[in-house]
């Protein structure tokens, strides 16, 4: 196991470098640098701009700039934002908890509800279960931000129900925060819930037709135990994969939802920093996202081994 983990961690290095190189290239691909934007907006003097560019190292060739950035990052120094001169790590430390809170709750609700709901849909064939299935299919096809707009139209509209706040995360206080979280978390939860439930249902339906389930029933094991222990455990692999894909979004945030609800999290930070050519911030956000993605991919693979010991055996041989 230790060797396997080590190998996997080493394999992450080229992927991590690839992601950061790509981000670096793509960020610089966009025309104009922050100083040029300055020049256009406030009319900074030509000589000033050249001097500042040299100070920020923006006059060096791109590979050199990337090398400098990398050598700083391995020492956990993300540099300072071009926009407000604050350390990027500080900006990240501000945005990360907000996004983690909103998206984390959404993932928690989505998967927490999807497993029992999927099992319920797979084991009952009633009108209700069919209606829920159809509802989930419909709901999945609906763009999140449309739902967000409709929810705002209904719940924070002086002409309809004016009960929920429209923007931000409130001014402190748990109750206020919870109140502000309702709509964004709901918007982020439902698409994941729809997909995850479908996955659980399909996997459970498949598992319940297998011989080992029949055998378990024949041995007189209570149906509840057959479903929740024997069948469910074998149905969890695709769900864990899906969870692995969802985890990076917990830290990456959803740009759209954060924008609709005015939550200054990672998604908005990413969006704004690319727009203003704030390279240090762009790279900081990308690094956090890349590490999060790679680690959650690893976590998924390790989790496979715990859920299905057969996979572990193959891995070590």
């Amino acid at each position: 196991m230790k060797r396997y983990l080590l190998r996997r961690l080493l394999l992450m290095v080229p992927t991590f470098l690839g992601i950061t190189v790509l981000t670096f290239a793509v960020a610089h691909l966009a025309p104009g640098d922050p100083l040029q934007l300055d020049q256009e907006t406030v009319g900074a003097a030509q000589a000033d701009v050249a001097k500042q560019r040299a100070e920020k190292g923006l006059d060096a060739p791109l590979p050199v700039q990337y090398g400098r950035w990398l050598s700083r990052v391995v020492r956990f120094d993300f540099g300072r934002s071009y926009i407000d001169q604050r350390p990027v790590s500080e900006k990240l430390a501000e945005a990360l908890p907000r996004t983690a809170l909103v998206s984390g709750l959404a993932v928690l609700f989505a998967f927490g509800l999807a497993v029992p709901l999927g099992v319920f849909l797979a084991t009952r064939k009633t009108l209700l279960s069919r209606a829920v299935s159809a509802g989930l299919t419909v709901v999945w096809g609906v763009p999140t931000f449309w739902v967000a707009v409709l929810l705002l139209l209904v719940f924070s509209n002086p002409r309809a129900l004016d009960v929920l706040p429209m923007q931000g995360l409130g001014e402190g206080g748990l109750v206020d925060l919870a109140w502000h979280l309702v709509l964004p978390v709901a918007c982020l939860t439902y698409p994941t819930l729809a997909i995850a439930t479908r996955q659980v249902r399909a996997a459970m339906q498949e598992a319940l037709t297998q011989d080992y389930v029949k055998a378990a029933r024949a041995r007189g094991i209570p149906e509840r135990r057959v479903v929740w222990r024997h069948a469910l455990r074998n149905s969890l692999l695709p769900v864990v994969t899906l969870l692995g894909f969802s985890l990076p979004h917990v830290l990456g945030g959803s740009v759209v939802i954060e924008r609709v609800f005015g939550i200054p999290g990672m998604g908005l930070l990413a969006f704004d920093s690319v727009g203003t050519r704030d390279y240090p911030t762009v790279m900081g956000v990308a690094t956090v996202m890349a590490v999060a993605t790679l680690l959650s991919m690893l976590a998924v693979d390790v989790a496979y081994g715990f859920i299905d010991p057969r996979i572990r055996v193959e891995e070590s041989s």
């Binding site: 691909l29 969006f271 890349a290 790679l294």
Partner: peptide, 22 residues
């Protein structure tokens, strides 16, 4: 395969914003 992994894990927002502004 590495390229595939990079593209899968790369935050698409950056790519799209930068590409579209060019």
């Amino acid at each position: 395969s590495r390229l595939l992994e990079v593209m899968t894990t790369f935050p698409l927002v950056f790519f799209l914003i930068a590409l579209l502004s060019v």
